[in-house]
Design a protein around this nucleic acid. Sequence first.
DNA 1: TCAATCACGTTTTTT
DNA 2: ACGTGATTGA
Length: 814
Amino acid sequence: MRAMSCPASTDPARSPLLQALNPEQLAAVTLPAAHALILAGAGSGKTRVLTTRIAWLLSTGQVTAGGIMAVTFTNKAAKEMLTRLQAMLPLNVRGMWIGTFHGLCHRLLRAHWKLAALPQTFQILDTQDQLSAIKRLVKQQGLDEEQFKPKELQWFIAHCKEEGLRPHQIPIHDEDHRRKVEMYQLYEAQCQREGVVDFGELMLRSFELLRDQPALREHYQQRFRHILIDEFQDTNRLQYAWLKQLAGHEEQGRFVPGSNAVLAVGDDDQSIYAFRGARVGNMADFVREFGVRHQIKLEQNYRSHGHILDAANHLIDHNRSRLGKQLRTDQGAGEPLRVYEAPTDFAEAQWIVDEIRHLVKNDGLPRQEVAILYRSNAQSRVLESALFNAGVPYRVYGGLRFFERAEIKHALAYLRLLDNPHDDTSFLRVANFPPRGIGARTLEQLQDRARSRGCSLHDAVEHLGGAAATKLRAFVAKIDVMREATAGATLRQIIDIMLQHSGLLAHYRDDRDGADRVENLEELVNAAESFVMQEGFGRDAVALPLDETASTLAVAGQSPVSQGLDPTAALLDLPLSDAVAAETGETVSPLVAFLTHAALESGDNQAQAGQDAVQLMTVHAAKGLEFDAVFIAGLEEGLFPHENSLSNMDGLEEERRLMYVAITRARKRLYLTHAQTRMLHGQTRYHLRSRFFDELPEHCLKWLTPPSAGWGAGERGSPWGAAPSRVGMQPAWGRSGLAETGFTVPASARQTASPAQAAAPHGIRAGMQVFHPKFGEGKVLTVEGQGDDARAQVSFMRHGSKWLALSVAKLTPI
DNA sequence: TCAATCACGTTTTTT
DNA sequence: ACGTGATTGA
């Protein structure tokens, strides 16, 4: 370790930390302390660069641990960074500000709860809680749930916050819009009254805190000399604005970057979250507004074989809006991409499973090194059943997470009421659970009373008369008893007491199908135990992180006071006493901390159901992961690219980036599969092969089935459909079995060798050019349903894509 | 208050 | 097709 703490002036290559880096990576790691942008391609060692950069900054004494902030999007990424850092440096990373956007915002708000106008024990509303809070509000306002769909309202509020807008800042368009904004305002008031904040509020409130408190802002600007941001292409407007508060200030309406250094790492080609507010444009804005002079591209890929990379490069080249980047590898070309067309989704799944068994049996591939990726969750069902029937162990990502399970949410609601009896969301969740004779009617009365008095449900109870009130009082008393019984207890004891007193445990024990839920509740106790262990509550670990940091570096032979900026001193100088309190973690009780943890980290996606299992997930979920062998299933027009994204260019380009992400997950072997027909929403649908096939270089592909007509076919006016086949019928070539056999088909022949596009009686088939009296010329994308129910999705030249009932619409093939 | 029935929606998702 | 969430009847 001593060797690493060489001063910045010595040859950096001598440090063992830096030796294994390629020139671009080295340049990125050893950048001067200035704003910089790293364009990091898939598999280019991005995380490694980030962590090594931090380690390098620390070990060369350019900054102390307290002077670094590193931001990620997911807890997983944050954890990974911490783990890798710890492996590189003898450092207590606890005092470092490494975490997710929301985690760090939360930390700020806990530290400065008074300035942020929050109650000290404020709790976090997850998406579920938020929705139920909104439903409650809509009902309370006596509004029609049909007209004001809570889901829509939730979306509206979340998006306003992502844009950094408070209700009064929103320009009103029309009456409907005005009412939405009004609801937003009422929702805010409700949250404030109940002492809860949603995810968006964590971001927005801490942004405003920094914006409106100059002393605080300057303190943190002085403190965080180096700010590093991962997955920058996924940041939304508010996150970027938040960053600017930490790294500069406004002057006459213009942003002036500060003296600290922001390192943004991202990949515009992997921007797949525009639908939730991500702005790739933040990358360009960052370069402009921060006057970035250092830009580095990491294009050396350490993951995939040549053909896979070629395919990815070629595909993404079809996107127009790109910063421009080309991955390269030192590994050989490797195997070609295998393409398989199945008659049905069922057959596709069957074939994939067979192929996986061969991979495992013949090639000795560990099952967890095989992934099946798909565009939408609905596709997992048929794959799961095929795997299940074949007895192949598998694991599906993306189900309910631990802290989202109903029984856990109930338990957490009780725990929250212990700290904050005015949390109405929690109150309503468990007032009658387990059932104790408090009906919906009673709760409605209580809500009315609370509203008219402007108080919480808890406080409204004593002002309620009648028989029902007795039961409510008993409930409130129960909570009060629990609160007394748990005073001064450890987290474990609190949970044990709560589980007993609330009757939750007994309720699920009595339930015939409650075994799993009982198990989960017991797991909750374990989760709390390990949380306490990790956080080291009530012990030295949290006490003085900055001092520990200082001594660590002193041992490494460096003065923590470099550039005259001692963060410890800066902190103590602060007139903000609660900042110190927060830094030492003194003010947060273990229970509050645990509840926060539950909200911010909703837990693992699924218990490790067998390590040796094939991995199933959406392409989105696969981002950042890699596997030896990858299957991308359901590569069909309308599915992938998804039909909802076809109406505009941006949508299609995002789908293409998604495909790019999918391809670059594979190390050695990649399969691309599609089906002619598929069950979707209970109906049979006929799909064309995805246009993405036509965007891959021919020399990378190995067609295991004769290539049929694809997206490009109709466009080029080639003849159609030789022999129509029926749904479920085996194609002429049968199951060509092993991937070892293959067809080599020249690109020119691809469109004409068109087998078996299933035909419906009306004669309209996917891929046809058609004419509509009103919309004019168009191309059929999808046909679904039979008889009078048959519908087609047609992409018209002038009117975009539309769904038309074939029994009504006058479509003529041309 | 609870179970049975029915309408509804159904791209992607983290915090 | 299928699971969820709200409504209705016992």
